[in-house]
């Protein structure tokens, strides 16, 4: 990889724009996971009663169970959503920038 290509990528405003966009997206996703997880932990610390509430009259399953499983499923989903967007949209844009630099 020649330094000329690197310099061209560096001078291309699209490069930093894309990096910014992708980082912003990643940080939003991390924030979502953190809100979800720490929200759940704080709920356990401060509002046990809510988590112990039954899903319906006469039921055994408490609100905490679907919420907990929900946190697991949410974590998996968020990961896939990011990976899909990064592997298609972001990578395509980055490839275009690298190609421009190589010309």
């Amino acid at each position: 990889m020649s330094e000329i290509v690197r310099d061209r990528i560096q001078l291309n405003p699209k490069f930093l724009q894309l990096v910014k966009k992708r980082n912003a997206y990643a940080f939003v996703m991390i924030a979502l996971v953190m809100i979800c997880y720490y929200g759940y932990i704080l709920l356990i610390a401060f509002n046990r009663e809510f988590l112990a509430t039954k899903l319906g009259a006469g039921m055994t399953t408490s609100v905490g169970v679907p919420l907990g499983v929900g946190v697991i499923v949410f974590t998996i989903l968020v990961t896939w959503i990011y990976v899909r967007r990064a592997n298609s949209e972001f990578d395509a844009e980055m490839d275009a920038i690298v190609k421009e630099g190589r010309q």
Binding site: A26, F27, M29, G64, V69
Partner: peptide
């Protein structure tokens, strides 16, 4: 019972951090 679920969630949430960052 339920406490096991809380415990396991803690071990999972690090993975998105690795993916994103």
């Amino acid at each position: 019972g339920f406490d096991g679920l809380i415990f396991s969630i803690g071990w999972l949430v690090g993975w998105p951090v690795i993916t994103f960052l």
